[in-house]
């Protein structure tokens, strides 16, 4: 089951978010050697991990273990593409309320390959479901070209935003992912056919503050 975490529901997902930042460090810093900031507690957190950011967390229902996660950023505010990778776009980076940028897509490091692919597929499906729910047109993202086959094989319909460029000896590119019913159908044709996104928060522990309800 994939949960949406936003400013309103962050408190209920503290444990999940903690696991997410640890997994991001394990994958991007420890394994891939990216030059990212790591805080004293071993969490990979950057300037875009603000209360405005949204996350999709794929949580193992029985154990509460985080299987995978991705971050969504609004593009009408500073984001990776606008601040650091604008030169990867042929025109201006896509911006506005109909586009979100996705980044930091990870799966837990101890999953066997096939399970990891299923987690990726679930997150991809959840992104499409959420995009349709919000009425988005597309998602934008930056990726190393070596990851592109893995991204495409999940079943997304992607369009390059410009030609790839070399950064630190590796080729990186910016792409746009179509959000559409047809896109969701294609994704579902490649894997699980049922809805995976849980928009309502999981039942919350009793909270002393003004209440965990989201006014829904």
């Amino acid at each position: 089951m994939v949960f949406l975490v936003d400013g309103d529901t962050r408190r209920q997902f503290e444990h999940g978010l903690e696991q997410m930042h640890q997994t991001r460090r394990e994958v991007f810093v420890d394994r891939l050697g990216w030059a990212l900031e790591v805080d004293g507690a071993g969490r990979e957190i950057d300037e875009f991990d603000t209360p405005d950011a949204e996350y999709l967390l794929d949580v193992e229902p029985a154990t509460g273990r985080l299987l995978g996660s991705v971050r969504l950023l609004r593009t009408d505010r500073p984001h990776l593409l606008s601040e650091y990778f604008a030169d990867l776009c042929e025109g201006p980076p896509p911006r506005g309320v109909l586009v979100r940028e996705i980044s930091r897509l990870v799966t837990a490091t101890d999953l066997p390959r096939e399970r990891s692919m299923r987690v990726r597929h679930r997150i991809a499906s959840a992104l499409m479901e959420y995009g349709l729910f919000l009425g988005l047109e597309s998602y934008s993202l930056v990726t190393h070209m070596s990851w592109l086959p893995t991204l495409l094989c999940v079943g997304w319909t992607c369009h390059p935003l410009g030609l790839p460029q070399m950064r630190d000896g590796q080729s990186v590119g910016a792409l746009s992912i179509e959000v559409s019913q047809a896109g969701l159908a294609t994704l579902r044709g490649f894997g699980g056919r049922y809805p995976v996104l849980q928009l309502e928060p999981a039942p919350a522990p009793v909270c002393a503050e003004e209440g965990a309800h989201r006014g829904l």
Partner: peptide, 16 residues
Amino acid sequence: FAAAQYAACFAFEQAR
């Protein structure tokens, strides 16, 4: 070369 990179990935996915 940059365009060839993209062509390769998309051709591969479509072939699959």
